[in-house]
Write a protein that binds this DNA or RNA. Structure first.
Lengths: 184, 184
DNA sequence: GGGCACATGTAAGCTGTTACATGATTAA
DNA sequence: TTAATCATGTAACAGCTTACATGTGCCC
């Protein structure tokens, strides 16, 4: 699966749930897929244009007013299934926190502690966000066929956040026992 | 912190542990930072050239034979500390597994199960790899000043892997109770 | 002498972000 | 009427991968 196809997958997938504008697409992806996916306008609009050219989505509503809704077509749904069945594109990891900690000797234990505390705070926030999404899903009577799958990704976010919190607590305890770096 | 600087951080950081060739740099980054960081030759060599130009690293050994060792300079160490102190560059998440699961209704429960099982296997492998690294660190009498920090990143990898395994087991149980998608 | 690991580098090209330009609609 | 939000798009650029070109040293 070429990299660019992953954006097509995300866009077609979101439109398979409901038709919406490019702008709404961005918000939805940010709010709902935010903890594991990301797309910017610079990708969404060209991708929509390309998908329209291929007949995989349809533009509805007045183009002249500058606001149009996109809907997935039958071909689009078929293409989506094809794309989803392709092997995952392994993401290249780039964790700035762990990079800094790895060279923490140069940075010193106090700065490391600050970084870990910040990471812990972000994880706690994420946990709260996941709870909110879970609640939303419970109260939403639409999309009952999709929601079991959505909950799987929420659960993944919760597990990851809890793991981060547990690790941060351990790490803070370990850092407290480390000597301050004597800057040579 | 501009994005390109992150590669400089990784390169300077690795050279702060010990001098080595560009080739060795790549191997070290892949083996030791592999679970949270990534650099390719296409970045490493230009970065080394740029760092040399700025006097942050020194090239030692016969250039003509095609094999030279790079060592960090005093200025390089200062620069490294400066870079490490910069705020983290938030990585844009792109998790192909969760993207597929989110649209799992289109993909069907069986294909989802295969994906989750594959992810579980990868996590089990990662856990084994982390154990091996831990063992290596225990037996290594060099770098005793750095190793406490290295262990923090190993621990992060272990927590993440265990969280993935726990999530995968829950998810597989949940998927077993889902009806197969009737393809319309 | 053949193959493999070590070693250095470049160039093409893709992916993705950011900043900008533009305008409609809505609420204060 | 002004500001915010909704909405669409483009262009420049940064970042990174991949493939290629090239050569050495060592072991079998």
């Amino acid at each position: 699966m070429a990299r660019g196809d992953q954006t097509q997958t995300a866009v077609l997938g979101a439109l398979s749930v409901m038709p919406m504008t490019g702008y709404a697409l961005r918000s939805e992806i940010q709010n709902t897929l935010g903890h594991f996916w990301n797309e910017s306008f610079g990708q969404i609009y060209p991708t929509l244009a390309e998908l329209e050219r291929q007949g995989l989505v349809e533009r509805r509503g007045a183009e002249r007013t500058g606001s149009s809704t996109f809907a997935i077509t039958g071909d689009g749904t078929a293409r989506l299934r094809e794309l989803l069945a392709q092997p995952e594109q392994p993401a290249r990891p780039r964790n700035g926190l762990l990079l800094r900690l790895f060279f923490g000797r140069q940075l010193g234990p106090e700065a490391c502690r600050d970084l870990v505390e910040a990471a812990r705070r972000r994880a706690v926030e994420q946990l709260a966000h996941m709870s909110a999404v879970r609640e939303e899903l419970r109260n939403d009577q639409q999309n009952t066929a999709d929601s079991p799958y959505w909950l799987l990704t929420v659960s993944a976010g919760e597990h990851a956040a809890r793991a981060t919190i547990a690790w941060a607590d351990e790490t803070l305890a370990a850092l407290a026992n480390l000597p301050a770096e004597e800057n040579p």
